[in-house]
Design a protein around this nucleic acid. Structure first.
Length: 489
RNA sequence: GGCGCCGUAGCCAAGUGGUAAGGCAGAGGUCUGCAAAACCUCCACCCCCGGUUCGAAUCCGGGCGGCGCCUCCA
């Protein structure tokens, strides 16, 4: 199966074809940095990070841009509230954003341009649009004249007439048509401002994305992504101004991810309960749980989350962690140290037929518009197969059996990598501390083994229970007792 | 009102024409002194009503219900 991608422009899944052979340019709208990230800000990055991983796996050379909008009304208001400057606020919030991306293993971003670094480009587009008759200056502002672009509305599939009718008309408006939008805004005293042919001012909301995408990815690139809520007006406006400016098609594929709700409620600044900062969430749940939550259904569907849901996901993650521990016991290798293929290959390795089948299932799901939900299901199938195999193995099993088992694990590594999962596993044995902890645990386990041998079960069980209370889990198996520190839930 | 999305087990969720992946929870079992882990088994009249078809969760029509966007929310 070949990759197909749902395109908001055409409202269909289309075969994926790039502008330039073997290369993909991808632009995703990043945050306006006026307040620290909540989980909603992470949906796009995690999804498109996964998209990039898969495209790279298919052999494309991907250039991924996520912008930082660091000048905007909201920043101005917030900076005033905080008694700081727009610049300092933007820097602080951007740093938080980067921390969150790193925690969630979003590693694929190639460029992170700031709007304020592209003022010159923005002014040039303004001028170009005025020269071509698509925009006009009015009282120090510059507006895009939507009546001049007959394709306006093609992304959000809206009738330009109705957009006009429904638009808010401000009494003091300098607009010719109610639907016109600002490309450049005259600045008031005290606001960040730049010199321009129309006087001191700052960029409008949509223009910075056009400037940065055209600059870095060129006039016609492959994928433009963002949240579903950005389709209109942001992307519609970005699209019309870009194509009006360049005269060529802008992005080939528009991909929009679904939005997140918290326990059924829309995440919104006016409903403070719904806002949970990423920094807090990361203190409570392992990053893989958050990443898996976001990838456990199809990216275009809305996702609801809450403590119950996250705990459930974290629980299901344990299956993998246990399997990785078992793998280490049997082979002496750590799962996260396995070298797995980073390119798609249809020659198959030494893994079992069953693993091969689910590996194919995983890739088929990804080919179908990045169906990560279906792919995750295949991952669970594979881990079950490997656990079944492991149950019949010892470190001294015949080498062909261990080779097949290891090949299955390698396939699991290859696939989970595509989802950005299990990249950095906690070092179980050392999670509780240093070598001394290990020695103490060995001592405790040895003494307990003696108790068990002498059938002092009450005391042996008390030791185990009290360790559980400390977050240390003991498991008695045929080959002895193993221990591990349970990750936070 | 306009443009869309969605309704699959207690919960989450894949599946878009051939008779229902997976996860969590639950039940039974194997193993175990017990527990845990792991494995095995079980758990779905696919919102309702019509229609098309040899055959529909899947296509069409009509309901009912939930949700998003409609000028600065990721």
């Amino acid at each position: 199966m070949a990759l197909r991608v749902y395109n908001t422009l055409t409202r269909t899944k289309e075969p994926f074809q790039t502008v330039a052979p073997g290369k993909v340019g991808m632009y995703v709208c990043g945050p306006t940095v006026y307040s620290n990230s909540h989980i909603g800000h992470m949906v796009g990055p995690v999804i498109f990070d996964t998209v990039k991983r898969y495209l790279a796996y298919l052999g494309y050379k991907v250039s991924w841009v996520v912008n930082i909008t660091d000048v905007d009304d909201k920043l101005i208001v917030q900076a005033q509230k905080d008694g700081t400057t727009v610049k300092d606020l933007a820097e602080r919030v951007t740093a938080d954003y980067l921390d969150c991306l790193k925690a969630l293993n979003v590693t694929g971003i190639d460029h992170m341009p700031r709007a304020t670094e592209h003022i010159g480009d923005i002014i040039a587009i303004n001028q170009g649009l005025i020269d071509k008759g698509f925009a006009y200056a009015s009282g120090g502002d510059v507006y895009f004249d939507v009546s001049k672009a007959d394709s306006y509305g093609k992304l959000s599939h809206r009738d330009p007439e109705e957009l006009q009718a429904g638009a808010r008309i401000e009494p003091s408006s300098l607009k010719r048509n109610p639907g016109d939008f600002a490309l450049w805004k005259a600045s008031k005293p005290g606001e960040p401002s730049w010199e321009s042919p129309w006087g001191p001012g700052r960029p409008g909301w949509h223009i910075e994305c056009s400037a940065m995408s055209l600059k870095i990815l060129g006039q016609h690139f492959d994928i433009h992504g963002g949240g579903l809520d950005l389709v209109f007006p942001h992307h519609e406006n970005e699209l019309v101004q870009s194509e009006s400016f360049t005269g060529v098609p802008f992005a080939s594929y528009w991909m929009h991810n679904g939005l997140l709700t918290r326990e059924g409620r829309k995440i919104s600044k006016s409903d403070p309960d719904t806002i949970v900062l990423m920094a807090d969430l990361l203190g409570e749940y392992e990053p893989d749980a958050i990443r898996l939550l976001l990838l456990s259904s199809h990216y275009r569907r809305p996702i609801d989350y809450g403590p119950t849901r996250l705990a459930e996901i974290a629980r299901s993650l344990q299956t993998f962690h246990h399997a990785f521990d078992r793998f280490e016991e049997l082979t002496g290798e750590r799962f996260d140290a396995l070298e797995a293929p980073t390119r798609r290959h249809d020659r198959e390795g030494d893994e079992s037929a069953e693993v091969k089948e689910h590996r194919r299932g995983f890739l088929d799901a990804m080919d179908d518009d990045f169906n990560t939900g279906g792919a995750v299901g295949e991952l669970f199938e594979i881990v079950r197969i490997l656990n079944r195999t492991a149950a019949g193995l010892t470190p001294d099993s015949p080498s062909h059996e261990l080779i097949e088992y290891r090949a299955g694990m390698t396939a699991l590594k290859e696939l989970s990598n595509l989802l950005g999962l299990f990249g950095k596993l906690p070092d179980k044995k050392q999670a509780g501390g240093d070598a001394l902890t290990g020695d103490l645990m060995s001592l405790l386990i040895e003494l307990r083994a003696r108790l068990r041998k002498e059938k002092h079960y009450a005391l042996a069980d008390e030791i185990r229970n009290r360790l559980t209370g400390l977050g240390v889990v003991l498991e008695d198996g045929p080959e002895g007792t193993r221990w591990r520190v349970e990750p936070k839930r």
